[in-house]
Write a protein that binds this DNA or RNA. Structure first.
Length: 886
RNA sequence: AGGCGGUUAGCUCAGUCGGCAAGAGCGCUUCCCUUACAAGGAAGAGGUCGUGGGUUCGAUUCCCUCACCGCCUACCA
């Protein structure tokens, strides 16, 4: 026999991935057939493969392999994302080890460093993806900083600017003092924070105090007003009066504004227009002064008076101390609130006023809303539709400039000498049309990484050029992604799709759940709770990882992974491996070197076992295909698992052992059917566990007439009329029932397996047929004789059982524990009686009879009949055992 | 504050249109190293389907209430 009894994935996986690549198995055809296209959510070049990637990419791979086998011209475009802030952070950290900052190097040198880093590590995650077995077309590997991609980004910027959708303005934005850059609203993550609410006493000019509550006392240095609600009786008289701001000695007005919540704090709020979005809005309405009191690193600046040069949090402490000394602290309450942090470095965000570039989103968003409203772009699960629409309907302007160096530099040019309006163009301008000067400086800032990612579905095909690829492969088919980037990426891609190509970028979006640990936390490196997929692949193989992950992830539901989750797939793959070994062994034993599958001859004059398993295969093919059509991956995976293990292996393979070596039926029918099933099952399994199926397919090729060079480029199984053996399904179920009943009886009475048992049956007409009786005898390990008299001649060493279909008895030479059997029967009777009663109630209920569909009534009637029969038999059995004669 | 998801076996979870004698994997119990597989086989135990109502002939499933867990949005300083 070939191979170890344990499947060893490591060599197999390496071998086949190389083979697939060598043979261009994952290439799409230019340009024929019906395209099915997926673009990968490009992983960040600084990233390592985590379990979330594994799930995301396994799903895509299942879809693409399934579609490829189903005859589509399947294309999966891979790529990576330059991840501006993250990558810059990584490289800066490297520099720091040498005691250098990016500023020491200067922009140009620093970018060289980053490019070098990316050459060295940028494809690390791609290599990890390959280990997962993903079938991307690697000849199309894209990067968001590729030349053509840059061109797409610049083109988009210019186009939007010309249409008036991009503007530059001084606004309050989210500022990360560590990354020293602006962030968009989406790049800020909020989390609970145990802080304090400080009640500050502001002296009113002319006597008295107003108490204001704040969580950030240090911002008081930039206060330019105190606001109260105009309908707040407490403060009516104060409106229009002035406050002398502590430390700054500045007079600031008390103003009325409806946005002030009377119920919160004291109902009076300090207004710091340059450091708070709400205050900014108030200030805008009241024409207040904007005073910035911090610098870009979060230190207090020259406007902070005596606190200049102190870090913002240190300043907070100092100010509170000082105010306390001056009796200007009313009280301090502990207060939990949500605080925004930088999604890249976790630093607390400072709302900060600065000049940035923005995209007006409202109008651009309209087609993206419409397409979903009209049902031309669908989300799976559907509930994301509402969340998507809610965001788009409330969309805010998008801050796209970043004060970093790594990224697409903003194509805005300023005259060196004069303050002309910026010139926006892809190329360096030659001459300013306003002042005629020829010297320009380019805007220092780069664009938000997502400002390039949102072009992904068409930029990967060469847009803005009108390429053949674009024409043929775009729009793409399905986008597979996680909920976290629905706004960041998905919604913006739809917007960009319509704005720049006039088309939706994809037909449907499947949003899978987030992978969490047992306690419900997101898996992340910083939490130290991450399961490393590469480690699992090393140990148990990519197939094991993929199958386990998919099987455990319900449609669109978050998944909580227990520690040994991957054992399910590992054990399953091992089972498949061994089933194959059995077939190979069987062929050897029977001198079969070559099996012609799909030959009409093999499917003639089949017995029950063959008819049954083929009919079941038919059903499975339909069901699994249906599941995949509906993104129900776990259901598909579990369905094949059940069929392969618990039908094919547990019953059909076992049944095949009933035949003697070289028995004609074995050779002419059983072996071909076994092989046929294996061939088809491997195909059904291939999208889920590509490696082991390819390996076994290649082995099958040597012994059968299958011609496909690779399973991955072979065809998906379909329903076959030849196997319309539906009558066999119920019949086989009954045989299985009888077998299980006998096995149970044997276990119950602790009868050794090997013991050659004589048994008799009565009233089970099924067993009158030699074929079926032999099956039961073989599978349950007893020998039958027909004996009508048995139930009348019960003796102590004979045990009688029944279930639905009659009686059988087994003659034992030893002692049987009659009491145990009686107890079991009594319990059984109770159980059956309860259900029988429920059924009876239904069927005597006229409302049920008149309202329920006839199908349900029929089913219920049949159930009642079965239960009644069973009850009778249990009772008779009890009588027999207690010695009552019938 | 609003929205969404969850609550089913000891654990992790399925369960589509309302009708099942409510399922799986792991774990557990008993037996078995029977020549595909001990990462295995056979048999079995284990559930008031979160609470309280409602609709219905019939509810794990639909509606409402509440509780707890989680997530996402939001300008309460």
């Amino acid at each position: 026999m070939v191979g170890d009894n344990r499947y060893n994935p490591s060599e197999v996986e390496k071998y086949w991935y190389e083979k697939w690549l060598e043979s261009d198995c994952f290439h799409s055809k230019r340009y024929s057939g019906t395209p099915y296209v997926i673009v990968i959510p490009p992983p960040n070049i600084t990233g390592y493969l985590h379990i979330g990637h594994a799930l995301n990419n396994t799903i895509q791979d299942i879809l693409i392999r399934w579609k490829r086998m189903s005859g589509f011209n399947a294309l999966w475009v891979p790529g990576t994302d330059h991840a501006g802030i993250a990558t810059q952070n990584v490289v800066e950290k490297e520099l720091m080890k040498k005691g250098l900052t990016r500023k020491d190097l200067g922009r140009e040198e620093f970018l060289k460093e980053v490019w070098q880093w990316r050459e060295k590590y940028g494809n690390r995650i791609i290599e990890q993806l390959k280990r997962l077995g993903v079938s991307c077309d690697w000849t199309r590997l894209c990067f968001t900083m590729d030349k053509n991609f840059s061109r797409a980004v610049q083109t988009v910027f210019v186009s939007l600017y010309k249409k008036g959708f991009i503007y530059r303005g001084k606004r309050i934005i989210n500022w990360c003092p560590r990354c020293t850059t602006a962030l968009s609203d989406e790049e800020v993550e909020y989390s609970p924070y145990n802080g304090s609410l400080y009640y500050l006493r502001y002296p009113v000019e002319g006597g008295g105090f107003v108490v204001v509550a704040t969580t950030r006392p240090e911002t008081m240095l930039g206060d330019t007003a105190v606001a109260v609600n105009p309908s707040d009786g407490r403060y009516k008289d104060l409106i229009g009066k002035k406050i002398r701001l502590p430390f700054m000695n500045r007079l600031i007005p008390i103003i009325p504004d409806n946005q002030v919540d009377m119920k919160f704090g004291t109902g009076a709020v300090k207004v710091t227009p340059a450091h708070d979005p709400v205050d900014y809005a108030i200030a805008y309405r009241h024409n207040l002064e904007f005073i910035t009191v911090m610098d870009e690193t979060g230190k207090m600046n020259e406007n902070a008076g005596i606190f200049r040069g102190i870090d913002r949090f240190e300043c907070r402490t100092r100010i509170v101390e000082e105010l306390r000394k001056q009796s200007l602290i009313e009280k301090i309450e502990t207060y939990e609130y949500r605080i925004g942090r930088c999604y890249r470095c976790d630093t607390i965000i400072e709302p900060y006023i600065s000049r940035q570039w923005f995209v007006k989103m409202k109008e651009l968003a309209q087609p993206a809303i419409k397409v979903v409203m009209e049902g031309h772009l669908k989300f799976y699960p559907e509930r994301w539709t509402k969340i998507y629409l809610h965001w788009l309907n409330n969309i805010q302007d998008w801050c796209i400039s970043r004060q970093i160096w790594w990224g697409h530099r903003i194509p805005a040019w300023y005259c060196s000498d004069k303050a002309c309006p910026p010139i926006i163009s892809v190329e360096t301008p030659k001459e300013c049309s306003q002042c005629g000067c020829k010297n320009f400086v380019q805007d220092e800032d780069v664009l938000d990484t997502w400002f390039s990612s949102w072009l992904w579905p068409f930029a990967v095909f060469g847009w803005p050029e009108k390429t053949k690829d674009l024409e043929f492969f775009y729009p793409t088919s399905t986008l597979v992604t996680a909920q976290e980037i629905l706004f960041f990426w998905v919604a913006r891609m739809v917007i960009a799709g319509f704005e720049f190509t006039g088309k939706k970028p994809f037909e449907s979006v499947y949003i899978h759940g987030t992978v969490r640990d047992e306690t419900g936390r997101k898996m992340s490196k910083s939490l130290g709770n991450a399961i490393d997929p590469i480690e699992i692949i090393d140990q148990s193989g990519a197939d094991a990882l993929r199958f386990s992950l998919i099987s455990l992830t319900a449609f669109g539901q978050d998944v909580f992974l227990p520690e040994k989750f991957h054992h399910k797939g590992r054990n399953f793959v091992n089972k498949i491996w061994n089933a194959y070994r059995y077939i190979e062994m069987l062929l050897e034993k029977n001198d079969c070197s070559y099996i012609e599958i799909d030959s009409v001859e093999s499917f003639k004059d089949l017995r029950l076992g063959e008819r049954w398993i083929l009919a079941l295969l038919n059903r499975k093919i339909v069901h699994i295909t249906e599941c995949l059509n509906n993104f129900r991956f776990n259901e598909a995976a579990d369905s094949i698992y059940e069929f392969f293990w618990h039908q094919y292996c547990d019953w059909y393979i076992e049944l095949s052992k009933m035949y003697h070596t070289k028995e004609p039926y074995l050779i002419s029918r059983v072996i071909p059917v076994l092989v046929y099933l294996m061939v088809k099952l491997l195909k059904l399994l291939h999208p889920f566990i590509p490696f082991v199926t390819e390996e076994l397919h290649s082995r099958m090729k040597k012994i059968t007439n299958i011609e496909d060079a690779f399973i991955t480029t072979s065809s998906w199984p379909s329903y076959s009329n030849v196997f319309d053996f539906d009558d066999s399904l119920e019949l086989m179920d009954r045989i299985k029932e009888i077998v299980v009943e006998i096995r149970d009886l044997k276990t119950f009475f602790k009868i050794p397996v090997t013991k050659d048992l004589q048994a008799a049956y009565h009233g089970i007409s099924l067993l009158d047929a030699d074929e079926y009786r032999h099956m039961v005898e073989f599978l349950s390990g007893i020998k039958f004789q027909k004996a009508d008299q048995i139930i009348k001649t019960h003796s102590k060493d004979e045990i009688v059982r029944s279930r639905g279909h009659g009686f059988f008895s087994i003659k034992l030479s030893g002692i049987v524990n009659i009491e145990a059997e009686i107890e079991r029967l009594v319990n059984e009777k109770k159980k059956v009686l309860r259900v029988y009663q429920e059924t009876e109630n239904k069927l005597t209920n006229s409302a049920f009879l008149s309202n329920a569909p006839s199908k349900v009534i029929e089913r219920t009637k049949k159930l009642r009949a079965d239960l009644e029969l069973e009850l009778n038999k249990i009772e008779k059995n009890i009588k027999l055992l207690t010695g009552d004669v019938l």
